[in-house]
Amino acid sequence: MAVPLIVSDVSKSFTMHLRGGVRIPVVEAVHFSIEAGQCAVLSGPSGVGKSSILKMVYGNYAVDVGQILIRHNGALLDLARAEARQVMAVRRDTIGYVSQFLRAVPRVSALDVAAEPLVQRGTDPETACRRAAELFARLNLPEKLWELPPATFSGGEQQRVNIARGFITDHPVLLLDEPTASLDAANRAVVVAMIGEKKADGVALLGIFHDAELREAVADRIIDVTGFAPQKAA
């Protein structure tokens, strides 16, 4: 099977114009690829740039140098140079994302939040909501919350809405940014099982997990991000 994602020689820095234009390098010469049916885990101490890498792959952060090649609808696309609407199409069809925090929209129910990625891909809203409800049930989200907007939910509840939202589609690539940070052991186990099912379905996963035990349970491969730390001299 073709490699779904190749990150090649990617560098990223922030230029802080409000701080006199100081340039803060984040990562340099990042290169790795992930394979279908495997879960690769970015590891390293906090602040080393794991989250930035994930965000570049999702198109959320700009890339200074290098290529991020994604197999999108049968062709390779360089996300580092893609136009905004191409990135949108990739997000709709190819790359799913479970973020650490939920950006809640006023007045939209948890079910609709979780169902949205399916609806965007053309599934009828009823079917999509039914699928979201199944995931909520599996993640033990109390049913009385389902129809409520998640803005007032606890961290763990919001995270489960986020997980459902990320796992509801069959995107071939799924990014996981600390999906279990606020979950208890039982729900963590559910997430581990769900990751296993994604792998069995041939999905390529790329994640950040702080919890070492969980990392052991899901990782097929560890990518050490400390190797991409910027050279002091540069």
């Binding site: 700009a62 609808n73 062709a75 696309l77 360089d78 140079r81 893609a82 905004a84 990135v87």
Partner: peptide
């Protein structure tokens, strides 16, 4: 322009089988 300067990224093999929409 947010992500890169070329309008047509060289690597896009445009008419792949699945993407008439885009």
């Amino acid at each position: 322009e947010g992500r890169g300067e070329t309008a047509n990224p060289p690597l896009r093999q445009a008419q792949g089988d699945g993407l008439p929409a885009l």
